[in-house]
Write a protein that binds this DNA or RNA. Structure first.
Lengths: 252, 252
DNA sequence: TTTCCATATTGCTAAAATAGCAATATATTT
DNA sequence: AAATATATTGCTATTTTAGCAATATGGAAA
């Protein structure tokens, strides 16, 4: 998290807040609902929505509700493409399908994990994409491995106030667990007989990959090994993409 | 495209322009480059970038360049999830894989098509996601079927000024072709021995699905039939999702 | 179908935010 | 290490915006 700039652009801050709220809403939302949800004055919300609507980023239904529109999908697709993470990581993760476990790729967002992939065994791979909501980071092995890469200060700030610290009763105990995870090199979370393990991707970590299912200690170690190998391949390819991008820019 | 609101939020307009430019760039971009590319004063650009960076929407590299960050990926994933298009359409399109042709799903963005899926035969399905850049709409069957749904005024405005009208030498001839496409119910584009056909999804159309490959007239008609069936299934499921969403909202 | 009600949207203007110049800070190149 | 190019900030005249009240527009009720 970068520090606050000298002169932040307020309209942009408020607009992104609106967009984020629309993105996590279950369907089109009205101006007034959004105003209440965000604690923002309704005229302000209307102004932001109308601006975003004019840009095509959100669309307005016939019943005056708003939801992400074509422009947002384009922005989504293009930014995922620009980062390269998706197109590099997915084929590698698809190779883990034969394990018969759940496979996941995610990024950390504040106190949540956002699963870019959440693929249940025995389903078409494509069904694992875009199927889950934000999930409390402390309940997820992906979240734990990513939180373990954050500075202690950041974690304190995140969970000292209003973060959803599920599964821990104090920041100190969370920090203790994160220290273990860091030393281990992977995170392991157990719930209802299901074991989930995850490793970080990148240095500094920009994502995490995980496997989840009913497994014993031996299978767990095996999965960790596979994940570490997969992460290394993804990282290598990401580095190559960034080199290609640099060359491509210099050619302009 | 909604009309201009009474009081647009300028900071938000400019911020989205910056974000869009970052999304279509081949790798991290510097403040000055972005300023030139957008024709925007450099202090302004810096202010917008720093604001987006503070929000986690973009990240700043050690060499002071900017690219979409975790917050953008989260926004992307969440908005794709919120619209439901991805998770509904992908499994249906995956079923067309056995045809051995290229399969695509896309949305129209101004004078371009953005491919949400662009799956080449014989590759893992996941590789077709997040792999292409924006493409001139007039060169794409998906683009043509979606342009055909636009009001004539919109097309004139789009291509009368600065749209990339590849393959046509006048707006009139383009409009003539779009009229044909509309009457046909599908678009067909031929290039280098490869035939591409596409149908719209939704009413009004919010996306298009297409198949592309070397095929004769009979195979072409067959593909169109399959696409229309697939589109109908997607539409039906999208309607159900929107019903579910409405019920879910009313339960709050 | 008409009327009523709740919400969306706009005009106006005092208040707040911002645009861009010049100064300062920070990478990169020589 | 010095020079150069770019990034970033402080300041203030200028522009944009926040929110009240008026007007417009869907949806519900009669």
């Amino acid at each position: 998290m970068e520090r606050k700039p000298a002169q932040p652009v307020k309209g942009l801050e408020d607009g992104i807040a609106v967009l984020q709220q629309l993105a996590v809403s279950a369907g089109p939302v009205s101006c007034l609902e959004l105003s209440c949800e965000l604690g923002m004055e309704k005229t302000r919300v209307n102004r932001l929505l109308k601006t975003l609507s004019h840009l095509g980023i959100v669309y307005r239904t016939s019943s005056r509700r708003y939801a992400p529109g074509a422009g947002m999908h384009v922005l989504a697709a293009q930014s995922l493409y620009a980062s390269g993470l998706f197109r590099v990581a997915l084929p590698h993760l698809e190779m883990l399908e034969s394990l018969g476990h759940l496979i996941a790729l995610g990024v950390l967002w504040r106190d949540k994990v956002c699963y870019l992939l959440h693929h249940a065994p025995g389903t078409p791979f494509a069904e694992g994409i875009g199927r889950t909501r934000l999930y409390p980071a402390t309940r997820s092995s992906l979240g734990m491995i990513l939180l373990a890469q954050q500075p202690e200060d950041t974690v304190r700030e995140l969970y000292g106030g209003r973060g959803e610290m599920e599964g821990f009763d104090s920041v100190e105990s969370l920090l203790g667990k994160l220290c273990e995870v860091r030393n281990c090199g992977y995170a392991c979370v157990e719930a209802a007989g299901t074991v989930s393990v995850a490793v970080k991707i990148g240095e500094p970590a920009y994502a995490a990959a995980g496997i989840s299912g009913k497994m014993g200690t031996k299978a767990e170690r095996e999965c960790v090994g596979l994940l570490l190998g997969t992460a290394a391949k993804i990282e290598e390819e990401m580095v190559n993409i960034n080199k290609d991008n640099k060359i491509r820019r210099e050619r302009k």
